[in-house]
Write a protein that binds this DNA or RNA. Structure first.
Lengths: 224, 224
DNA sequence: GGAGAGCCGTACCGTACGTTACGGTTCTCT
DNA sequence: AGAGAACCGTAACGTACGGTACGGCTCTCC
């Protein structure tokens, strides 16, 4: 969506729409900030004022309001994609640490003001069945974490630490144990306080529960 | 919100705002229908046309747009509150049945078009920090089911079938195991098919997992 | 240093929609 | 039957906001 390009100008140091220029990134950050502060009433005029740019520029860069919103969601997504768990030792305690890390990270994300604002926006748009913001958010939230966690689960299984048939089902169980009612409550405006200590505690609890359900009692075939 | 009552007329066969007249209920049903069909673009004119009433009447009865929406949410809530699990025998299989029933019921609710539309609406409003639709939906969804399920859990504990310290925590685990990623995916527009057979299967699986985590190995103290 | 492009600030336009007003019709009560 | 209230259908009003146009400033490049 970035760069509608009426004029054939070499204005794009970044060909990829997913990589806005520094100035464009500043605009998108302004959008994110406004979304968190003002909630739903996000107007083009407000964005222009906050970002100290003209509406004309907004429309030239992002096409229309929906383009701006889409770019903002992708911009935030590109940021979150950063953390990546590399292959670790295949033992019980490192698996447990990985799972705890995933759960804690997920809880941090969904309880952040940015995520709440973004999800609310995407849900509002999904209701109007305009644009595909919902899919984008899903892709970079729920499905992205699935894609990152599933290999960990399968490694755990390969190492004899976990036991399951359906990786997807196992992941969804973990997702449920970690998230529980947190996201829906926050989206609906419940002021659930979730500090770092609570997150760590809950992540550990969810991990323990998951391991109880899917952990193999005999990690190594020592029984034979 | 129902009945703004400029004129001192005995127009209310129902004094309680939670109990609209038949005609008012028809209007609220029209709102629900429109919400599901048209998504977010719910206009007062559209409601009036659909309900075959005048906008003037809408404003007289519900005050303003927000009042109409609030009344609609409460109207739907009053409907869902119907099902109620009465005390059952305190044995393992009836407990299991109760839990399965709760999980299946909850999955049915959150995957219904009505619930999705209502939650989207409430989330949109929560974003605008106007009104308290979010709280109302939470009260009649997440918290209502909690209030109904917790006694069951505590009975199960009293009967020696379950083991936990914190009822709230146990409930939240059950909630997470049952719901997993279903609600957020549906709210974001993912077209997750959830038929009766899947619901029953998933409810049973969630119940089994919950019992694995919280069930007591020795239901009756037969070991002594 | 002059031409041109990019951009800021602001005024402007059109539309959608919440809200109000009003004439005409039906129902109720006496 | 007649008065009055409730209500329907529709027109009208005001505003908020998405989108566009334009004047002026600055920076770059020749």
């Amino acid at each position: 969506m970035i760069s509608a390009a009426k004029t054939p100008v070499p204005e794009a140091p970044s060909a990829d729409p997913a990589e806005p220029t520094a100035r464009q990134a500043a605009v998108l950050d302004a959008v994110l900030a406004l979304m968190q502060e003002q909630g739903g009433q996000l107007t083009m005029t407000g964005v222009a004022r906050r970002a100290s740019c003209s509406k004309e520029t907004l429309y030239k860069w992002f096409g229309d309001r929906d383009g701006l919103l889409t770019a903002t969601v992708q911009w935030q997504a590109s940021r979150v994609r950063a953390g990546r768990y590399d292959r670790q030792r295949r033992d019980a305690s490192s698996l447990r640490d990985s799972l705890r890390g995933f759960a804690a990270n997920w809880l941090s994300v969904i309880s952040s003001a940015t995520s709440i604002a973004l999800n609310r926006l995407a849900i509002t748009h999904a209701a109007s069945q305009q644009s595909n913001l919902g899919q984008i958010v899903l892709e970079n939230g729920r499905f992205a974490i699935g894609d990152r966690l599933k290999p960990v689960l399968e490694e755990g299984r390969a190492a004899g630490l976990l036991q399951f048939d359906d990786t997807e089902a196992a992941f969804r169980t973990f997702f449920g144990l970690a998230g529980r009612d947190v996201q829906i409550r926050l989206l609906l405006g419940d002021d659930l306080k979730l500090g770092k200590s609570e997150i760590d505690r809950d992540a550990a609890a969810a991990t323990d529960q998951f391991l109880t359900l899917y952990g193999r009692k005999t990690p190594t075939p020592a029984a034979a």
